[in-house]
Amino acid sequence: MTELQLNGESIAVEAIETTPLAYVLRNECGIKSVKLGCEAEQCGACTVLADDRPVPSCTLALSDASERRLTTLEGLARGDVLSAVQNALLTSNASQCGYCLSGIAVAAYALFQTNAHPTHNNIVNALDGHLCRCGAHPRVIRALEQLAK
């Protein structure tokens, strides 16, 4: 049994300690927003917040995650009310297939937590670890720039 601090709740999961957090979240905790894309810290699809900082969950072992306060996309909304970042991305249709969307939203949320008015450069640097094969980048950037105003 490992104790996880997940989206403001404490939950116990049963999985071997070396299991990457992404697998635990998806398969033991029902957190499907976390996507696997590369399992090598190269794409950002699996990004979650650990103590408010974005980290790839594909290589973070369960045992190392248990000490940290974890937040996933599911934890960004207050009930039905989306966070400002999610709302900005949604109302701008800032996606195509959406496979990269959750990782991007989580990283952008972290950025806006530390800086309510990020510049263009702040935004693209914060998202640089996130790949999007559909080419939705320009509208992601536009949506976040709009929000930063």
Binding site: K32, K35, N93, S95
Partner: peptide, 21 residues
């Protein structure tokens, strides 16, 4: 108008809509 994509809200909420999910 600027129509909302009908598949996007689930995705921004983290609903598991992909075959992987």
């Amino acid at each position: 108008d600027n129509h909302a994509r009908i598949d996007l809200e689930d995705k921004i909420r983290g609903v598991g809509v992909f075959v992987h999910d």
